[in-house]
Amino acid sequence: MTETKEKLFDLAHTGLTDEQLFQRAPQDAAAVEKIVAPRYSYWRSVGRVFFSKKSNILVIAMMVLILVFTYIYPTFTGYDKFENIMDPLSKHLTPAAAIEKYGFHIKWIFGTGESGQSTFDALWYGSRISISLAILCTIINFSIGIMIGALWGFSKKVDIIMNEIRNVIANVPGTLVTSVLVLVFSPNFATLVFAMCVTGWIGIAYSIRTQVIIIRDREYNLASKCLGTSTLRIATKNILPFMISFIVTMMANSLPGYIGSEAFLSYIGLGISDTTLGKLVYNAQPAMVTPGWGWEFWCPVMLSAFISIVLFLVGQSLGDAADPRTHML
């Protein structure tokens, strides 16, 4: 082995000079700067980390199932609360009785409600409004919260003003503000979104502010600032990526929160008149204690719990995956 290697390097037998044998390679200024490393894409890494865990695939499958039933299923079947109102025998049926009466159909697997409507259809129709409300409120609150929170963290003047505003709002319980707003304006979807967003963003903005203040003065940002990077670029390129995981985790916490507050408002009689999960619980309250009627009460309760947990878990796992520190191979 060593002998062949020796042979390979022995160029004397060729009889050529060094100049003939070797040629100087051209120097490329751009290539010098290039670092050879595996390609790194942030979102691809997030996807990789997220799907590398088996339980996450299960959770995301459940979320897809929920979304399909919430947004696509009702468009096929169409929900009519009063479809069986004329039939006194159709009311408060258990699943077994309903299937016996109408034949097996996915519609009847949870029995019927107080006016003979299908509990299963009512659930998904109701969850459409509840989930839409939660998603919409989350989007609005986080958009406002992140923007104001970033400003709040960066500017000392804004900090002083915003702290005072927060003091005013924080002293009044959020439920009180929401209930009063819903009470004052007629309860409908838009009002509910408005009432939940009017003070909802401030907590988010405050958390963002705290995070911004923590990260803002780190060495790498100081260095970036010394090199003349604009504040906007520091905010969007240096700080925002750091906070994505934090923001996603916070969203995971707040989504179930909105579903819960909608249920709460409906429960104290301030909900919107349309069918929502909270409204279904509210309407079915007397059914809870009536033997044989339990299905129509427990189904919305359990579904709201199920939706909340799934959304929460998806958000938590996504938040973990969004943390760049988990992207190391």
């Binding site: 916490n253 709460f264 809870m288 204690v289 719990a305």
Partner: peptide, 20 residues
């Protein structure tokens, strides 16, 4: 996680049912 995610309305009722 269960307690954070589940709406309080839901588990208040669960407790009520268990108590009954």
């Amino acid at each position: 996680i269960f307690m954070i995610a589940v709406p309080s309305l839901a588990y208040y009722f669960m407790f009520k049912a268990v108590a009954v």
